[in-house]
């Protein structure tokens, strides 16, 4: 496996539920949650773009709240529930927010997209009917270098509107 890191002391046994599935894993203290998800569990939908908390592409949900996986140690997720972008679609049905992104051409390279989806879903639970300005402020913590953001704001606004109806 890649990205394990030599432990100082024995690796810790952790139990973490990711996308509804329980994993028992031995994790060295210093492995980042982003690396753990990607390289240990093979959940490569969570992306890494800066590893200092700025770009937002690693955003996942930790116990229901959006969080930067690059700012968390895997051991901190011991006993917690993590959700990643892979959990959003059910079978061949994408989540309405994912559909809205497709409908509004809100992605180009798609590297930023998983993090933006995860951040947005948490945002909408607290603010189901946001203004465009509020959406932009939330998005200011998620870097996208392709789209110029306007189509992403369109998609989120449309998904929120559809959700509200």
């Amino acid at each position: 496996m890649s990205g394990s890191g030599e432990p100082v002391g024995p690796p810790r046994e952790i139990v973490v539920t990711v996308n509804g599935r329980r994993y028992h894993e031995a994790a060295p203290d210093r492995i980042l949650l982003s690396d753990f998800l990607r390289h240990r569990l093979g959940l490569t939908g969570t992306h890494v773009g800066c590893e200092h908390g700025v770009c937002g592409s690693c955003t996942v949900h930790l116990d229901g709240a959006a969080a930067r996986a690059c700012l968390l140690l895997a051991v901190q997720a011991d006993g917690a529930e993590v959700h990643t972008v892979e959990s959003l679609a059910s079978g061949d049905r994408m989540h309405p927010l994912q559909e809205a992104f497709r409908e509004h051409f809100a992605l180009q390279c798609g590297f930023c997209t998983p993090g933006i989806l995860m951040a947005t879903l948490d945002f909408l639970t607290h603010n189901p009917t946001p203004t465009r300005t509020e959406i932009a402020e939330m998005l200011s913590g998620q870097l996208c270098r392709c789209t110029g953001y306007a189509p992403i704001i369109d998609a989120i606004a449309a998904a929120a509107q559809a959700g509200a109806e």
Binding site: G53, G56, T59, A65, A66, A67, R68, L71, L72, A119, D122, F123, E137, M138, S140, G141, Q142
Partner: peptide
């Protein structure tokens, strides 16, 4: 303070 996601943590 930071951004929406970082304020969660």
């Amino acid at each position: 303070i930071g951004h929406f996601v970082t304020r969660n943590r």
